[in-house]
Simulated scan of single mutants.
Amino acid sequence: MTSTPAREGFFFPAEWHPHVATWLSWPHTEASWTRDRQELMFPAYIDFIKAIARSEQVCINAHNEQVMQAAEDRLRAAGVDMSRVTLLPHPTNDSWCRDHGPAFLINPAKQQRLIVNWGYNAWGNKYPPFDLDNMIPIRIAQYRGLDYVTPTAPTGSIIMEGGSVEFNGAGTVLTSRACLLNQNRNSHLTQADIEQYLYDYYGVRQVLWVEEGIVGDDTDGHIDDTVRFVNEDTVVAAYEANPSDDNYPFLQDIHHELRSMRLLNGKQLNIVELPMPDPVVSDGLRLPASYANFLITNGSVIVPTFRCNNDQPALDILGQCFPDRQVIGIDSTDIVWGLGSFHCLSQQEPAL
């Protein structure tokens, strides 16, 4: 492609846009969960797959034939509708498909789809190896028979993770400086440079920045733990009510930043406060537990819960935001030990 996706009319739709499928990468190494922790998290992971499969196809990158068979055995034993599941022999290093999976763009006028093959370096070279994960967008493009484009600069590929960007489907993307301007991603690029890549390869016309993320987030501040669009002009924003909590100042700053923002049409954001769960701590480590790490599917909103009093209020708030979808809470306490939850694990594939 000699032009950019944006000039050709492609854009990244909002997550509530109809899906062809949701993509996952099956856990098979100890990169995020030790073997004993993996056994603890698999019941919730399979409940997650079962919930997605109620309203759309689930496509799963499985490292090899052995992993494919082990995955199928677990899914069948749990009663998952296997007609809604496709297992593919796509080698992976880890399980966080939101970040290593493809960015699917659509062009409704031309009835075409396109994949953006961003570079992936495991959140600033924190968790090598990541070479197999970095190939996943190309493997999926080949499987789907879709063209793909790889954003590059003179110094190499452009690092971009799906959890670092949040779209309203109407020209706006939300992101954080702590992540996208981190020197461990694209040290050779300025903020203006990065904004131009977002315009050119996501088809947006406005970039809105918050500063930080939450405590325990090893991604350096992914937006999908703090602020999520629920329609074109409304966000849910993680809110900490306890002034002594370590997240309190960061989330207060984000709310202040959001209140000052204006959308392309000049409107202020509607901001819905989404409470934070009680701190989730394991082995002395504060984990990045947040209700904002939900996944929107064709028929549901799948929300992580954490065995605390704010679980139900959070589900109720999201139910009011998505009256046309079933809100499903699934215990993510063992999943978040791997430092992510349902949104981090998944990447939606939009329909035209």
Rank of each mutant, 00 (worst) to 15 (best):
G119Q: 14
Q142D: 12
F306P: 02
R35Q: 15
N168R: 02
L75T: 01
L315P: 06
T226E: 01
G266R: 04
L318D: 03
Q183R: 15
T219W: 12
W96K: 01
S341C: 15
G203C: 11
F250H: 04
W16I: 00
D283R: 15
L181P: 05
N186D: 14
L180A: 07
K267W: 05
E30V: 06
Q326P: 01
I49M: 05
Q312N: 04
F294D: 02
V173M: 13
G284C: 14
S332T: 00
D311F: 13
S187G: 15
P288Y: 13
L263K: 11
L181N: 10
R139I: 06
G329I: 11
W118T: 03
N293G: 09
D220Q: 02
G163D: 02
E240C: 15
T4V: 01
I317K: 06
A237T: 00
I158A: 08
Q320M: 08
K126T: 08
A44F: 08
L345D: 00
V336D: 00
P154E: 08
S95M: 14
M276C: 12
P279K: 01
A241D: 09
G340I: 07
V149R: 07
N293L: 05
N247F: 10
T172Y: 15
L88D: 03
L198A: 04
L315G: 01
P129N: 01
D224R: 04
I330R: 07
L208E: 06
V207K: 09
G119W: 15
Q111I: 02
T175L: 14
E211Y: 01
E273F: 11
T226H: 03
P128S: 00
A62N: 05
E273I: 00
E273W: 09
P129E: 00
Q111L: 12
C308V: 02
D47G: 07
G299Q: 09
D131E: 11
G299I: 12
F42L: 14
A351R: 14
L174P: 12
P350H: 13
L198P: 07
H100S: 10
P313W: 13
C59Q: 09
